[in-house]
Amino acid sequence: MQVGHLAVVGTIASFAPAITEAAGVPRVNAWSAESLVVVAVTHYLPNFDVIPIKLGWATDRFHCSYSHSLLFAAAVAAALWPINASWAVLALVSLLLHFVADSGSSVGLPLLLPFSTKRFSLYLWADTGHSGWFAFKSTYQQAWTWVTEGGMFVVLAARFYQLRVWPFS
């Protein structure tokens, strides 16, 4: 998933009150600056593995490796817990939903790293690289990316309506 991550971020942030209340941590308001920043940063965090690749510190195979594992999600949440429990909960949900959003990609998610190198994928679309125009263009030549990412934008619009946000205010 590429552009669709934006819609996922917006949707998770819209559910911030429900998520934090369900977890029994201090409530975070929907689409507050706090919820948007925490969700956006942590949702995109797994894809920051492109930075060491671009800097030449890692090979392309580093993409979708440790940063896309359940252990990474748990570690980020555990690191945030002493700072702010609400952020930790939102981060965990954001990271797990990043994995769900990427589950259709053929690159596969090594969710059980470092205990297993098995990659999990629904093979809905072929992965064509971690960055660049070709990766972007070729992703949208495939059907399921439109279904899943487009569908997320419809869901986000529904949340705009439900929360009475412009243009549904």
Partner: peptide, 25 residues
């Protein structure tokens, strides 16, 4: 907005996206 997933569903019945996916795989 519904055109985005709608187009994707329509593409499921088109050979070109399937071919692209097969080539990229």
């Amino acid at each position: 907005l519904s055109y985005l997933p709608g187009l994707g569903l329509a593409m499921l019945g088109d050979p070109a996206p399937h071919r692209a996916k097969a080539e990229y795989l």
